[in-house]
Nucleic acid binder design. Structure first.
Lengths: 337, 337
DNA sequence: TTGTATGCGTTATCAT
DNA sequence: ATGATAACGCATACAA
C-alpha cells in the first residue's frame, strides 16, 4: 500500500516547516531563494501534488462547475456541453454533469451542487419556473448562468435568438413564393419553442398571410409522432408547400411521411432543418439548415460564468444573445404555384 | 452573508456533543431514542446537511466517478455517457467528465482524477497504449473500466462485438447478391475500426470473395473526406454495389457523392449505416442500420465499475461483450447483376 | 450510552 | 524570512 505524500513529507524531506512548503507552492508570502529551492527539490523528488479535496475544504474553492441539462443524448445540448467542457477545462475548471427532466430532480441537483460547494451552475433546465419563489436556481447562492430559458427570475443568461432565426428562415421561404409553411418545433412550454413561433408568426404577419394553426406541430411530449401530424397536414385543402422542422427526430418523421406520400424534395416540398450540421448531413438533397451556433453559445456561457465567479461582472444580470446562421442547401425550391 | 451550518451548530441546538450528531446521522455506534430524536429535530429545524467535501476528506469516499472520452459531441459517445450518468446517478455517484484527444491530456486527466480522489475511471480513450508501462490507466490506483478499447494492459472492459456485427451486416448484403461492398469505418488505430475490418474480411473469406483494399476507407484523421474516397471507388472497373459506413459524417459524405453521380439508393447502391438510430433517421429511404446498443453497453460499464468499487469483483479482470442489432430498413436491395 | 479529542491535508494567521 | 499552530467540517477511536 503506497502511502499518499503530503506537505508534511515534503517539509520533512526539505528540512523546513510545513507552512513554508505551502508558501512556496502558492507563491504567497516571503520565501528566500535557498528555501524555495530546497522545497522545490523535495517536491520534485517525492512527486508531491497538493490534495485537491483538502485544499478545497480549506479555501472553499472547488474549481468545479455544475452543468445541469435535460438530456445529454440531445445532439444540440451535447455539442454545447462539449464546448463548455473544453473552455472550462482550459480555464482550470472541471465540470460535474447532472441530467434532469423533472422539477424535483432540478431541486435535488442544485442542492447537491451547493452541498459540494461547486463554484457555479450552468443550466438549461426543462422547466422555466415562472414563480421565482419556487425556482431552485433563484434560491441558490451559487452563480448561475441559464442557457436559453426565460425563467421567472432574472439570471445571467445566454439567449438564442429563435425569433430572429425563424424570421430569417421564413423570409427565405416567402421569397421563394411559399405561402403555406408548416412548422415543427418543440413545445411552447420553453423559450425555444415559444420564440420560434413568434418569429414564424411575425414573418407571416409582415407578408400579410393568415396564421393557420393547423400547420403547426408543437408537441408537449415526445410520445406524439411528427409523422402522423404531417400526414394530417397533407390532407388539408391547401397543404403546406414548405416545412421548417427541428432536427433530427421531428424533421425525419415529417419528411418520411411526405416522401412516402410521393412528394419530392424540393420540387413538391421545400424543407429547412433546425439544429447542428453534423446530425443533419444525412439529408439528401443537402438540407438548408438554420444552424445553431453552439460554439458562440458555449463561449458566451463560459464567459458569463467565469466573470461571475471572478466577481467582475457588472452590476445586474447580463443577457447575451446568439444569432442563427442560415446555411443554404438544395432542399428549398420556388413554390410550384 | 448567511453562515454555513455545521455539525457544531446542530450539536449546540440539540444540546448534545458533536460526535453524537455524527453518530446518529451515520447510524454508526449507539444512540438512545431520546438522543436520536433531539438530534433529528435539530437537523430538521436548521436544515442541516453534512458537507460533502469535509466528509470526503475524512472518509476518502468522493462518491464521484471520472468519465474520460474523446469527444462529447460524438453522438454515440454522448448516448453512452448519457446512460452512464443516469445509472451512476441512481447509484448515488456523480460524474466528472473530461474530454481528451491527446495522450498528454489522458495522462493529465488521470492524474487529475486521482488527485481529486475519484473512486473510479470510466474511459474510452483515443489511444490504446500497447505498452502497459506507458499507459496512464494501468498506472492508476483507481478502479478502471475501459470501453471498447484493446489496451496493452488488461482492464475490466466492455467490448462491442464489431467483428460479429460486421459479419452480420456483410452476410445480409452477400445474401442479396452483393460482391463488391465498400467499407467506411474509423481508423485501424483503435479497436472499433480494426474489429470491423476483421468481421468484414471474415465474411468475404467465407463467401470466397477476394479482399480488395480499394473498397476500404479507414482514415487516420478526420481531415480526409469520405466523399472523395467514394468518388474514387465509383471510378473503379467494378465499383461497389453496396456500402457499409459509420454514421453520420462518413456515411453522409459517401452517400452524397454517390447520389450526385446519379446513383439511386437502393437500386444502384445498397447502404448499411452504423451507429445509433436517432442520428440516422434522416436518411431516405429508411436506412438499414447496424445499431449500437449503447443502453446495454452503459449498463455493463456501470455494473463493472460499481462492482469494482464495492470490492466484490471476482478475481482477475472481466471483459463483457455487447452485440449489435441489425435493423432492416429499405436502403438495401438485391444486387443488380 | 454519550462526550472528548485527534486527524484527514491544506492554507492562513499568528509569533519569532 | 520562517516556524508553529489553528481551522476548514466531518468521522471515529477512545475515554468516561
Amino acid at each position: 500500500m503506497t502511502q499518499r505524500i503530503s506537505v508534511r513529507d515534503v517539509a520533512d524531506a526539505a528540512g523546513v516547516a510545513i507552512g513554508s512548503v505551502s508558501r512556496v507552492l502558492n507563491q504567497s508570502g516571503y520565501a528566500s531563494e535557498s528555501l524555495r529551492k530546497r522545497v522545490m527539490d523535495a517536491v520534485q523528488k517525492l512527486g508531491y501534488e497538493p490534495d485537491f479535496t483538502a485544499r478545497h475544504l480549506r479555501t472553499g474553492h472547488s474549481r468545479t462547475i455544475g452543468y445541469l441539462l435535460a438530456n445529454i443524448a440531445n445532439p444540440s445540448l451535447a455539442a454545447h456541453l462539449s464546448e463548455v467542457e473544453r473552455l472550462t477545462q482550459a480555464a482550470g475548471y472541471s465540470l460535474l454533469v447532472g441530467s434532469s427532466e423533472r422539477q424535483a430532480r432540478d431541486r435535488e441537483l442544485v442542492a447537491f451542487f451547493e452541498n459540494r460547494r461547486l463554484e457555479g451552475i450552468i443550466a438549461s433546465p426543462s422547466f422555466e419556473y415562472p414563480d421565482p419563489a419556487d425556482c431552485p436556481f433563484a434560491n441558490s447562492k451559487l452563480p448561475v448562468v441559464i442557457c436559453d430559458r426565460a425563467m421567472g427570475h432574472d439570471f445571467d443568461s445566454v439567449l438564442i435568438e429563435h425569433a430572429k432565426g425563424l424570421r430569417r428562415a421564413m423570409d427565405y421561404l416567402l421569397s421563394l413564393g411559399h405561402r403555406r409553411i408548416a412548422l415543427f418545433v418543440s413545445s411552447a412550454n420553453l423559450r425555444p419553442g415559444r420564440e420560434k413561433l413568434i418569429g414564424y408568426q411575425a414573418a407571416l404577419a409582415s407578408a400579410g398571410i393568415a396564421y393557420d394553426e393547423r400547420l403547426i406541430y408543437m408537441p408537449n411530449s415526445w410520445i406524439e409522432s411528427s409523422g402522423e401530424s404531417m400526414a394530417e397536414m397533407l390532407k388539408l385543402d391547401e397543404p403546406p408547400t414548405a416545412i421548417i422542422a427541428l432536427g433530427t427526430r421531428m424533421l425525419s418523421g415529417a419528411i418520411h411521411v411526405a416522401r412516402e406520400a410521393g412528394l419530392d424534395i424540393p420540387r413538391d416540398l421545400s424543407v429547412i432543418g433546425i439544429g447542428i450540421m453534423s446530425t443533419l448531413e444525412l439529408m439528401y438533397p443537402p438540407l438548408t439548415v438554420l444552424r445553431y451556433n453552439y460554439e458562440a453559445s458555449a463561449q458566451l456561457t463560459v464567459q458569463l460564468m467565469l466573470d461571475r465567479i471572478a466577481g467582475d461582472s457588472p452590476p445586474g444580470v447580463r443577457k447575451l444573445q446568439v444569432e442563427w446562421d442560415l446555411v443554404i442547401g438544395r432542399s428549398c425550391a420556388v413554390a410550384a404555384r
